[in-house]
Amino acid sequence: MTSQPILEVRDLVVEFATRDGVLTAINGVSFHVDRGEVLGLVGESGSGKSVTGLAILGLIDAPGRIASGSILLEGEDLTRMREAQLRRLRGKRLAMIFQDPMTTLNPVLRVDTQMIEAITAHEKVSHKAARAKARDALAKVGIPSPDERLASYPHQFSGGMRQRVAIAIALLHRPALLVADEPTTALDVTIQAQILSEVQTLAQEAGTALVWVTHDLSVVAGLADRVAVMYAGRIVEQGSVADVLENPAHPYTAGLIGSVPSRNRRGVPLSQIPGMTPSLAKLPPGCAFAPRCARADAGCRNDPPVVAFGTARMHRCFHPLVTAEAAA
């Protein structure tokens, strides 16, 4: 494809200044998202996936900061923008929804206030027109009697309903990119499936690309086009969902896939990755996954390089499960 990607992240480094020194939460992350594409960003908690999402929106607060790298939205570098420029893009071209629907809406403001302010922040419209637009947006995400619901407070909604309101707000301006930070994790499984399919449909209608941050590979399998696997602040493997899930190259990806329960492997004990996610303050030298990896040897104390292989795939591993030749 020759067309420019919606989002292109290059060598992003995010650091947090703490009392014990500077922690590198994201260490040289590069990926891109094409128009209308869904990218799954997978990793355990602490892997840096949520920080990546916040960095895209420019919402990293002190003591954290983007130390280097660039984030190009439709060709424009967000890291070089002033706060005022960035603010005009947020909510308009770039949107984000968060994990816990109980806390994403302000408890002391009515839903209409929170929706209308999101509209008038970017459009010069009358209060009445903004209200009408808000009502339509609520109806679109499947909220019954939207007129009444507009005048309610968030605590009068269920968790799933609140997440729908958040999605409606995020998609108000048909943004080019929506970053979804585990928006279904806190919901019941049935609601989770509904919300997933609704977001997918709405995003397709609006032509919005998605970066779907999650720890749940099954969500990625059903939703995403491509997947990037993060570990300790780095992307360790990237490729199309079908390729990566069928033939993982990185031992960590293989471990993640192995620990997902599945119907086909009933009775077989689940495999698990030994050890724990390393603390960012005490990362081992070289490949951060080496201490937990069965294939690691002394060479893994060096930094594994990015290896491109197959069709638009990459990994960072000295001992991949799939060799470049085999995949080709």
Binding site: L54, L57, L59, E83, R87, R88, L89, R90, G91, K92, L94, A95, M96, I97, F98, Q99, D100, T103, T104, L105, N106, P107, Q114, E117, A118, A121, H122, A166, I169, A170
Partner: peptide, 14 residues
């Protein structure tokens, strides 16, 4: 709180 982040993500002014 997340709702402050969300408010900022909506593009509201400081």
């Amino acid at each position: 709180q997340d709702y402050v982040r969300f408010a900022r993500a909506k593009g509201l002014s400081q």
